[in-house]
Design a protein around this nucleic acid. Structure first.
Lengths: 149, 149
DNA sequence: CCTGGGTAGTTCGCACCACGAAAGGTATCG
DNA sequence: CGATACCTTTCGTGGTGCGAACTACCCAGG
């Protein structure tokens, strides 16, 4: 129903939405198999590099402050993250991975990368590079936060 | 952190995840502005072509049966869809858009298409065609349901 | 040193969303 | 006609999202 552009078999908007749908499904399935929800998995992945404050995490994950509080609450209850008082600001906390959270984050991340890489298994290496380059430009142009490294 | 392939500035897996994140955010924002949730918007779009049975909708939307029941309940409560008994099978119902649901679906769909099309505004027409072609092949190879037409 | 404006994060209330197990009604087949 | 299968809903549970309001802390200006 979407009007196709020049030489498009599937319109780009349709392709984008279905790709997002696919990625979300793969991500959710991987998370479920690692015993976390997709949102928890995303939080863990974002924290792999280093702890982050709530005011950095919120915008990065696209969440309202109360939503992030709940997500961190549930993840902390699981023993995956912990709140660490910020020594330089009495109001702030840093959210850090616990040891078991870090271990889970690493296996979840690696497994998810493998599954996602497999999605494009039918494309040649050149095509994958080209696809990555085009998507990277879209992502950069729209200033998407660094939700997956 | 993801290992880049040949001549990739951003690894493909990272580009895929961030693109999905971006599309989800745009879709959720459009839905919110049209007064529905992203899930409800997706249901409405899928029903634009014609009514569907629950057993077709579930797999198409990637939902468990009880989840779909709830989504249809909430959408019906909003007056957007209705359950119609299937004349050929007393067990089954067809879910159809109401008049107001159809109107909302159309404006939401058109608006969402415009916003998503704009995401790739920085790419040339040729590049958009190329991106659509590559994504279409990934989507087809992974048998993604027709969640957006 | 005090204060007002701003920041950081949590609580509360609410609605939405996801799933699995079980149940009720209907269809089909031997 | 009875057994099995299918269709959908119900129930219980946990997760998720948001806005408004609140508490505690920070900081620059007077």
């Amino acid at each position: 129903m979407v009007r196709a552009g020049d030489d498009e078999k599937m319109p780009m908007v349709t392709a984008l939405v279905r790709t997002a749908f696919l990625v979300d499904a793969v991500y959710a399935q991987a998370a479920r198999e690692h015993g976390v929800t997709a949102q928890q998995g995303q939080l863990l992945c974002v924290l792999m590099a280093h702890p982050l404050g709530m005011s950095d995490l919120g915008p990065m994950l696209g969440l309202a402050k109360s939503s992030l509080t709940g997500l961190v609450d549930r993840s902390a209850r699981r023993g995956l993250v912990e709140r660490v008082p910020d020594p330089s600001d009495g109001r702030a906390v840093q959210v850090a991975l616990t040891a078991s959270g870090a271990a889970l984050a690493e296996t979840f991340y690696d497994d998810t990368c493998a599954r996602l890489a497999e999605l494009a298994g039918r494309l040649s290496g050149t095509e994958r590079g080209r696809l990555a380059g085009l998507l990277a430009r879209v992502v950069e142009a729209n200033e998407v936060p660094a939700v997956f490294d």
